[in-house]
Design a protein around this nucleic acid. Structure first.
Lengths: 306, 306
DNA sequence: AAATTTAATAGGAAAAAACGATTTATGAAT
DNA sequence: ATTCATAAATCGTTTTTTCCTATTAAATTT
């Protein structure tokens, strides 16, 4: 359908209001001829008469008045669209779709979400927990605004900000021969007792990378679906596993018969980062979010230390 | 405020929907470069980013989606404005502001309004009763769409259509010496007994014009405010007066002790017409209305004759 | 009758919109 | 790794639209 322009509608509104082409033109900051022609074109486009005019007088027709009312509404909606566009968003407000990998999510979120929620009350977080490659796919598709992942990982052309570093620990059943002592080198671990997360979890790859053992993966006797179930199995004496520091700090470990020892290998073993598309339009919000999480994490640990 | 054009909004809606400049351009029947530039200008006008784009992919921002929704609404309102403009009005429908002079109104309207109302159910008549010059003033100001007047009268540049003709009668008290007989010449009337409507009523001037007596007006003993009161006075024996045929036909005469005689002077003494501005946009409606009134009047009289 | 007001119109200048061609960047395929 | 294909941005040009100035024509007022 052939639509009139907003300018034409504005001219109509003004001339209907003033009933005078010259004055209306002045108010619209154009000449009378411009206005006159514009109204004629509008009338011809609509195929109706909007104004009854002699050389002396202008009287809007009934239809002209009705359409001017509608036009006013349209213009005012457009103005409100412009205003809507220009409301300065507070930092970290509105919807934010955040993906988190499963080996970070249950340990990180309880530590930082309360602080984020209270610091940015107008932020509406939509959380999605999935493995790294799925998160990256959704991120690329625009279904997520950002994601929390663990490095090292090839992020392609994505931008990111590291906000935390941590090492891995080895978890033994409390009564395991190796359960006591300080840092332990990964070569000394009984490979055949090693329980690992199923494929796709980056924690599995990271842990194996730290230990320089790719082959050993094959020997792993069980592939767990989550760190929680894995820990249950360790507590049950069915093997040993790697845990990130975050998890060890967690309450749920305390309730199980488990002992942990640091890995002797130099860290940091993994880095937590917030990732986003290069073209993402609210990068500053995300940088702020990452900073905020670092701060909250640090606060959380220093509090536990007391 | 600087507003975006409807065209820009339409481009935005399309590109947000398709997430692809090329396809959106095709759907809008323009080239990709046109669309690309238009969106950039819109973004710059609004001062915000509406689309997140790489060379490969387009993802609307949250704001882009919201504004596209608003834009859709604005466009659809504009479309509905165009449609509203193009609904073919039924003949004689909608508002019509009609002025009628007091010496026609009470006699004509009861005869024609029921027929008009039933024939044109969607017509909303707004009636105003006033003297000719006031009606013409309001007509010129656009406060009335048309008016029913009596000719002869100088209507200036107005257009009109005569729909009825009638003569004047003389009304006597039933017991007046001249009350009986056929046509009577105005010279034989007792000028000092003549009761007339106050100045401004065209009936007064018309009657005097028919009788070729201007001077006689000065002798008129009383100036009535309406034909009804005038008739009451005649019935009370206080004098004689002129009445248009329409009024004589009316029921209210029968209830009074009044006799009427035609004037000997050749008619028609006055013509009833519908007047409108030359530039008025619904002339055909008014011509139809006039025709309709003629028909209804004729029907009304032929029915009385039976 | 002359002067004034006001909408329409004509012609030309300025601005905006659109196009075609090219460039640049990014995935995908070889 | 190189080439190919895709897609958005950009550049220069053409077309279209918009607007302006000046004038005309009609209707009032002086």
């Amino acid at each position: 359908m052939n639509l009139p322009t907003l300018r034409q509608l504005h001219y109509l509104v003004t001339v209907v209001e003033l009933c005078h082409f010259g004055q209306a033109a002045e108010r619209c900051f154009v000449t009378q001829s411009t206005l006159s022609t514009a109204i004629q074109e509008l009338e011809s486009l609509l195929g109706v008469q909007l104004l009854e005019r002699t050389k002396r007088k202008v009287i809007p027709t009934q239809l002209g008045i009705e359409l001017a009312d509608k036009a006013r509404e349209i213009i005012s909606m457009t103005e409100s669209l412009v205003l809507d566009a220009q409301i300065d968003r507070k930092p970290l407000s509105g919807e934010l779709r955040l993906g988190v990998i499963p080996t970070i999510s249950p340990f990180l979120l309880p530590k930082v979400l309360p602080g984020i929620r209270s610091g940015f009350a107008e932020l509406e977080l939509y959380l999605l927990e999935d493995q790294t490659h799925n998160l990256l796919e959704r991120l690329a598709a625009g279904e997520l605004d950002c994601a929390i992942l663990a490095l090292p990982f090839d992020l392609g052309g994505l931008e990111y900000q590291v906000f935390w570093q941590e090492n891995f620990l080895v978890a033994f059943p409390a009564d395991h021969p190796l359960s006591q002592g300080g840092p332990i080198a990964s070569q000394k671990l009984p490979g055949n007792e090693l329980l690992l997360l199923e494929k796709g979890h980056c924690l599995r790859d990271h842990a194996l990378a730290v230990c320089h053992m790719k082959a050993m993966a094959k020997r792993a006797s069980f592939q767990g679906t989550s760190l929680y179930t894995l820990v249950q199995m360790v507590a049950g004496g069915q093997g040993i596993t790697f845990l990130p520091e975050m998890a060890v700090d967690d309450d749920f470990l305390a309730q199980n018969q488990i002992a942990v020892r640091p890995l002797a290998e130099k860290g940091p073993h993994r880095e937590l980062c917030l990732v986003w598309r290069t073209a993402y339009h609210r990068k500053s919000d995300l940088a702020l979010l990452a900073d905020c999480m670092r701060g909250l994490l640090a606060a959380s640990y220093s509090q536990k230390a007391k």
